[in-house]
Simulated assay, not measured.
Amino acid sequence: MGSYLNPGNFSFCGSLRSKIYVDKSELIAKTNEVLCTEQRYICVSRPRRFGKSMAANMLAAYYDRSENTEELFQNLAIREDKSYKENLNQYDVIKINMQEFLSMSGTMEEMLEMLKNYLAADFEETYPEVRFRDEKNLIQVMKDVFSYTRCPFVILIDEWDCLFREYKQDKDAQKKYLDFLRAWLKDKDYVALAYMTGILPIKKYGSHSALNMFTEYSMTDPGDLAEYFGFTEREVSALCKKYEMSFEEAKTWYDGYQLIAHRQTGDEIYSMYSPKSVVEAMLRHKFGTYWNQTETYEALKIYIQMDMDGLKDSVVRMLAGEAVPIHIGTFS
Rank of each mutant, 00 (worst) to 15 (best):
G2K: 11
L5S: 04
L5G: 03
F10E: 13
F10M: 10
F12S: 04
G14S: 11
S15Y: 13
S18C: 03
S18H: 14
I20Q: 06
Y21G: 05
D23M: 10
D23P: 08
K30C: 10
N32P: 07
L35H: 05
E38V: 10
Q39K: 15
C43M: 14
R48A: 07
R49Y: 07
A55Q: 10
A55D: 03
M58P: 03
T69Q: 06
E71G: 00
L72P: 03
I78R: 04
I78C: 12
E80V: 02
E80G: 12
S83V: 01
Y84A: 06
Y84V: 04
N89Y: 01
N89H: 02
Y91D: 01
Y91H: 04
V93P: 02
N97C: 11
M104V: 00
S105M: 02
M108L: 04
M108H: 02
M108I: 09
L112D: 01
L112M: 12
A120L: 09
T126E: 15
P128C: 07
K136A: 14
K136C: 08
Q140S: 13
V141F: 04
K143Y: 09
C151V: 14
L163D: 02
Y167D: 02
K171T: 14
K175V: 10
R182M: 09
W184M: 15
D187N: 15
V191C: 09
Y195D: 01
Y195V: 01
Y195S: 01
M196D: 00
G206M: 09
S207M: 13
S207G: 09
H208V: 12
A210R: 05
L211V: 07
D224T: 10
D224C: 10
E227S: 15
F229R: 04
E233H: 07
R234F: 09
R234A: 15
E235H: 09
K242S: 11
Y243G: 05
K251E: 12
L259S: 06
I260W: 00
G266H: 07
G266K: 09
Y270E: 01
M272A: 12
R284P: 00
H285E: 13
F287T: 06
F287N: 06
T289V: 12
Y290F: 15
T296Y: 02
Y297D: 03
V315Q: 02
V315C: 13
E322G: 01
A323L: 11
I326Y: 14
H327D: 14
I328Y: 15
G329L: 08
T330N: 12
S332F: 10
